[in-house]
Design a protein around this nucleic acid. Structure first.
Lengths: 145, 145
DNA sequence: ATACATGCAAACATTTTGCTTTGGC
DNA sequence: GCCAAAGCAAAATGTTTGCATGTAT
């Protein structure tokens, strides 16, 4: 989509308005930062950014992020509850997971993971060593649906 | 690897010993729970499990998890710093990431994601709706390596 | 005997909430 | 003017650490 960044911003604001959000200074500033970012930003990163920090409270940033995610404007990465998940790791074994975005239940997926072969290639291109990967599918489980 | 669970436990303890860990009651109990689990457990889950809760402190569980992960016996899921990451989500767009396990830097990967096509199939099999996925590669970046 | 492992309590970081006030529509 | 959004401050959550003590080797 990387069209003109300004157009992008306008389009995004339009999507927000359609979702019923008001065009506030904080909304606009937050979106600018996120659109400009080349990689994901933490809530903390965002709340600390000088422009935002000077003109709005972290609670505002927080609630904006939540609202924007609910409307699909943003995506929050990773397991969405605030806890550290651990699983056994047996050499040569790998699992992928299916996670409910509502209740958080995690199921192990029994599929042939199509990603293994990419690791060598990515390692070569990036210079990263000891590569491994995680693949998670998110959705709404039958119970929550 | 799903051999006899007891053998599995023994093998795992052997790996721990080789890594220089002592065979303590807590180590053994923790591994039992993790091996028995069908899906990942949170630090909280583990620390609260009756057997563990009665006989050892959460700090012990915590430090065991950290040690076991360091030695590759366990794997911790997700972005490893304790913060919530957000990224723009444009309809039809999808990104995969490459993350350094040492310094946490996140790079956007410019690859054709091989997973898209699996979503429909998984949705059908599992009954989960509104599927999307995340694919992250982890490794040690050139700077940290 | 010596280090590594544990327990307890206290500190921390990050996220989340309640309530009042402001400002977009 | 009405209701969603912002501000402020305080709580909740989920780890993480320091230090004294215990225990596997």
């Amino acid at each position: 989509m990387p069209t003109n960044p300004n157009t992008l911003l306008d389009e995004t604001i339009a999507r927000c308005r359609k979702a019923g959000l008001r065009r506030t200074w904080a909304l606009e500033a937050l979106l600018k930062h996120l659109i400009a970012a080349k990689s994901p930003l933490t809530f903390g990163d965002l709340a600390e950014m000088k422009t935002l920090k000077d003109r709005c409270d972290k609670a505002t940033v927080f609630r904006l992020l939540v609202r924007l995610e609910k409307h699909g404007i943003l995506r929050r990465l990773g397991l969405h509850d605030r806890s550290a998940y651990y699983t056994m790791h047996f050499p040569g074994e790998h699992s992928d997971f299916l996670i409910c975005t509502q209740c958080g239940i995690i199921e192990k997926l029994d599929i042939a993971c199509p990603v293994e072969k990419l690791e060598a290639q990515i390692s070569k291109q990036s210079g990263f060593k000891k590569l491994y990967h995680e693949l998670e599918f998110f959705g709404v489980c039958p119970k929550c649906g």
